[in-house]
């Protein structure tokens, strides 16, 4: 590929290009951010803490997941492990962008990594395939997303604080559960996921009853991950059923 010879850089022009491409997704980002603001207030988090979380974490799914575990005393291990597990996909996403990132000086890798999310990562991968070598693309789209995510969170918080809504009456307490149902539906890649997820769900349900509070997520997640891995290994030794994507 000749394009891989083009030098990698980080410029303002690239940031503008990335931000422009991001515009189409902003409406849904605002709405999810509002939903998070509302859910966080519903879970008992203060308004300032909700904004701090959106600003410092900037990863929707894990923020929703963390809400349940933001209790006193802080269940540190379940909290951090759950956040890690929800965000573990970032490791793979970063690895995919390595040919791009990896040729930058170390300091210049820090900012693009901080603003990498599912949406702008997907855009960046497409842009790289088209020959884009300016990592500003990821930074510009990421910063625009971050500002939007923060503003939407603030809007959600303001909504809850201004209007005294009965959260349960409007099913706001279910927002994060339903959000994950949406996410899972789009994540599902096939039958092998069903096996892993069935194991995860069943294990979590058992753990909910027999283990101390908050450990069900971790046990379910690990059981599902291991089940998926075992299934994956077994399939690798059966070449005739070679049907995985890509």
């Amino acid at each position: 590929m000749t394009t891989s010879e083009t030098p990698v850089c980080l410029t303002a022009a690239g940031m503008v290009r990335g931000a422009r491409q991001m515009a189409f997704a902003l409406v849904s980002v605002v709405l999810f951010a509002v939903a998070f603001g509302v859910a966080a207030r519903g879970a008992g988090l203060e308004g300032w803490a909700t904004l701090l979380m959106s600003g410092a974490v900037f990863a929707g799914a894990s923020q929703f997941a963390a809400l349940e575990l933001m209790t006193a005393p802080v269940p540190w291990i379940p909290l951090l492990a759950v956040v890690f597990a929800v965000n573990a996909r970032h490791i793979l996403m970063g690895a995919v962008l390595y040919p791009w990132f990896g040729r930058l000086p170390f300091v210049q890798r820090l900012l693009p990594a901080a603003v990498m999310t599912d949406i702008n990562w997907a855009l960046a991968v497409q842009a790289y395939d088209r020959g884009e070598r300016d990592i500003g693309h990821l930074v510009g789209s990421g910063l625009l997303l971050w500002v939007t995510w923060l503003a939407g969170t603030g809007l959600g918080v303001a909504l809850v604080d201004a209007v005294t809504i009965d959260l349960e009456r409007f099913a706001v307490d279910l927002v994060f559960l339903l959000f994950f149902v949406c996410l899972l539906t789009s994540l599902r890649r096939g039958r092998s996921d069903d096996i892993a997820w069935l194991v995860a769900g069943a294990t979590a349900l058992v753990a909910w009853h027999v283990l101390p509070a908050h450990w069900h997520v971790l046990s379910g997640a690990l059981a599902g991950g291991i089940a998926g891995l075992l299934h994956h290994e077994r399939r690798r030794h059966q070449p005739e059923r070679h049907d995985h994507p890509q």
Binding site: R89, G201, V217, L218, G220, G224, L229
Partner: peptide
């Protein structure tokens, strides 16, 4: 192998998060 594990882990964590509260919240959920 690590890639496969992480891939299944990210879905499984969401399932594990959702299933028990949905079951216990009742018919509305």
């Amino acid at each position: 192998r690590i890639e496969a594990f992480l891939r299944y882990l990210s879905g499984s964590v969401l399932v594990a998060l959702v299933v028990p509260p949905v079951i216990h919240t009742g018919p509305a959920a």
